[in-house]
Design a protein around this nucleic acid. Structure first.
Lengths: 208, 208, 208, 208
DNA sequence: AAGTAATCGAGACGGTACGTCCCGTCTTACA
DNA sequence: TGTAAGACGGGACGTACCGTCTCGATTACTT
């Protein structure tokens, strides 16, 4: 479960006394998601989350040490689980992963959510590490596996720059999401996949 | 040119009375740039700008209606002017533009600056329009011209998706800048240029 | 008693959650009193009060809705409690009350404090009502009781205009305090008391 | 002309160049009076005066060195000229002066105007001196002359405290104006006059 | 069953930045 | 030089939101 990798929830583990209320966990994340969707990251207030969730602020801060962490957790929930696809062809596998990514990031709040997260990562290294090692890494590793399988199959040249290939697969999507506002759709997914397959083929011309 | 297109400075144009003091314009932008460099976007305070510039806060707000607008203007200043290159080859022209982009966005504060800007664009459509129509559009139009010239020369296939090509040229750079933290260097520039040239060549295979 | 009647402190009464901190009440009023004494009303800054009291500005504004209200409360504290005197003679009772008033209003900051308050009352009806119903009314009612006792004793004529008598007792003091800068001393106290006793005696000449 | 005594107008006397525009003088004082009446001292802004008068702010500050001075000048205009009355009786003369005072201070803006002036005097000694030496002194000296004539006529005791008598005549009026909000009317005027005449008569009882 | 300890909702707290307001001065171009 | 217009430096205002703390009331584990 991708959400797991970002499960920052327990700040400290209690050893006795009244246990954490699981309904509060749910209510907080639910309220956060709603408010993020309604208002965007920028107008997202911890007081509002508390009120909407019917929860004290301390109850939130007992679970998430800062607003940014709560946003990160909420984003983590939105991002779907990733399974390594096996369609039988490199193109099919890449398209499967890219379609999934398009699904996730074409949601209405994805843009605001990611923008806020990106800005929050800028002044919180720990958060940045978690995000990069969390849902981003999951998708990235799946793509890497598919690419390496493609090299093995002879669909892709052995000398290709894997990091570059990953950034070409993911970059345009995030670029449109965060910067240009361009469409995040199947055409984009197919475009980058075919570009990779054709541009990094075994003719060897595209190696740096 | 590029700098011009982002000249958001005059909120309103006075018609009589004491004119705006050009030294204040300079002092404000200078102080903003310094503080942005020293502290980053998120520790950037309007009071500090005013103090550093030796200016009243009202004098800043007379020029920029919010903190975000000032940051946007400062970013605009940082981004260098773009001239349409003419090296004789499509590859040379593309590389020239990409090298220039690498220069600009590999500066130490570029990342924090752009992250703040991207987040600010999320809740200010006017600002987003200015940024997209400003320094981003300038670079984009230059790249578009080079690509179209490449199609004319037969270096690139006529059916290529120009928007996709532009996003493949710019996306990985911004992806690394804002999300992955990957290196923004010559290798990236050459990688995407060669991928475009090889992947979108005239064999026609890569069409949508 | 007098202090009680001006206890404007609670803007709203909480019913749950963390209760107001009584030490903050004390610190705020203490700091306000000190600063009023040191600087006077017109150099009195809310930021300074907050800093001196070691308190956030919001904590002050939670108790006093404006600077004027805080000044009013501080003035209320300065004004001593009034006990209805009973010296056995009308002259003694009146002198007792007037001596007390002289004590209070001959303090060095009384003038600046009252001037500020009077000006603030001009654009805040609620504040005016509080001041008039508070420490002013307390002294006024005490004087009224003594006068009525004096009428009963035959020291004062039954037809005297009580309101006028009260204003003759208090007016010259405030006139000197706020306008002429004349001395506020025992001579003034005795002068107005004897004038009232002689001018409003039972010969009936001064009626209407 | 009482207005004269407060004519602070020329901050500095020009010696050559373009002469002051007399229409500006008029427009400024007129606008100030209107705004004072409409809004009260507290919401009285120099920018508004300039706009209403159709005049630059510098033109105002060339005539009045501060807001307080302008308010003082405006008050001076409102206060009517004082002629020493001669009705043939001490009571008639006192009543004449007090009726005049009642007329002046029962005007609707008198209260706000005086409150603002009193507060301004608190932190501007020069202004205080001018006000006290100006329209206040004029009325005071007239009253003093009448009282002394009354002593000569045997209507008032020779040992009376003249300063106290003056403050009893004026104090209640200002007390009601600034503090209690009580009525400023003929009854007040007659009340204090008769109190003075009866309380300070030649029986000598009321001397301190 | 009593005691202990961490939980809960509510909301006050210290701190800090924001963007607005107004003062009194200064700077234009014009008269 | 005086003028209208309005920008300027300065500095206080009252608001907003963060993350912490405090209250009285639960709710489990531990004796």
């Amino acid at each position: 479960m991708e959400l797991m990798s970002i499960e920052i929830t327990p700040v400290a583990t209690a050893r006795s006394g009244r246990p954490r209320d699981a309904r509060a966990d749910e209510a907080i994340l639910g309220a956060a998601l709603e408010l993020l969707a309604e208002l965007g990251v920028h107008a997202f207030r911890m007081d509002d989350v508390a009120k909407r969730a019917g929860v004290g602020k301390a109850t939130i801060y007992r679970r998430y040490e800062s607003k940014e962490r709560l946003v990160a957790a909420a984003v983590g929930v939105l991002v779907s689980e990733i399974a390594l696809p096996d369609t039988g062809s490199t193109r099919g596998d890449l398209l499967s992963l890219m379609h999934d990514a398009v699904d996730v990031y074409s949601r209405p709040f994805a843009s605001g959510l990611m923008a806020g997260l990106v800005e929050a990562m800028r002044h919180n290294d720990e958060l940045a590490a978690e995000v990069r090692g969390g849902f981003l890494a999951a998708r990235r590793e799946a793509l890497r596996a598919v690419i390496e399988r493609g090299v093995g199959r002879g669909d892709l040249g052995a000398e290709l720059d894997v990091e570059l290939a990953l950034d070409v697969l993911g970059g345009p999507l995030f670029y449109r999401l965060l910067v240009t506002g361009g469409p995040i759709d199947e055409r984009l997914a197919e475009g980058v996949v075919d570009l990779i397959l054709h541009g990094f083929d075994t003719t060897g011309r595209s190696k740096r």
